[in-house]
Simulated scan of single mutants.
Amino acid sequence: MTEREPERVELALELLAHIEADELSLAEVVDRIETVTTDPSLTRDILDTAEMRGIIERDGARVYHRRGGTFVRFESQVVQREGEFDCRRCGASISTGHFVKFESGELGPFGSSCIRKVLGRE
């Protein structure tokens, strides 16, 4: 692993732990992980670690969330900043970036609809 990979793994694990959907397709989970990394081997490591830590359970192409009530609180954990950004999920140019503050770091920027999708609220 490179120097930054453990940080990215922890950030992705926190994101997965905070997703609000009980069940997602593997493709939907990978879509979220890709906001942190697009490296296929690191994505695999993240999925394996999430399963080992009891964050998710995989059954074929379905992923079940095994959370303990850890939703992202929009009021305190999502910060909006004005500027010129590209959304980490869809790549669109945005003037208001939404950033999620986790213990392991900050993830973003996201547009207003992508932040909801990444967190499983849509």
Rank of each mutant, 00 (worst) to 15 (best):
F99M: 02
I94T: 08
G60V: 10
E14L: 00
V100E: 01
H18F: 04
E23W: 11
P6S: 10
E51W: 07
L42Q: 11
E103A: 11
T37P: 03
E7W: 03
T37L: 06
R81E: 15
V30W: 00
I55M: 06
T35M: 02
M1R: 14
G91Y: 10
Q77F: 01
I56W: 07
A21S: 14
L107I: 05
D59G: 14
V118I: 05
V36S: 02
G111C: 13
G105V: 01
R66C: 04
E84M: 06
D45Q: 14
E7Y: 08
H65L: 11
T35S: 11
G91M: 09
E106G: 03
D31W: 09
S104W: 01
I33H: 07
T49D: 11
A12K: 00
T43N: 10
S41L: 14
F71N: 09
Q80F: 00
E14V: 01
E57Q: 12
V9L: 12
D39H: 12
G68C: 13
T35K: 01
I33C: 02
T49Q: 13
L15Y: 03
D31I: 06
T35V: 08
R116G: 02
P109F: 05
S104H: 05
A12S: 07
R62D: 12
G68H: 11
H65N: 14
E20I: 08
R8L: 12
R67D: 04
G97R: 07
Y64H: 14
Y64P: 04
H98C: 02
L11H: 03
R89H: 13
L26A: 15
V100S: 04
A17F: 01
D59K: 14
R58D: 04
S93I: 06
G120H: 02
E51N: 08
V30G: 12
D48F: 09
S25Y: 00
D48T: 15
E57F: 01
S95M: 05
K117Q: 13
T70D: 06
F102L: 04
F99K: 13
T96N: 10
E103I: 02
G108W: 03
A50C: 04
R81Y: 06
F99N: 01
G68F: 09
F85A: 11
R89N: 11
D31H: 12
F85P: 12
G54Y: 04
G60C: 07
P109Q: 08
R58Q: 14
E7C: 02
D48G: 13
E5I: 06
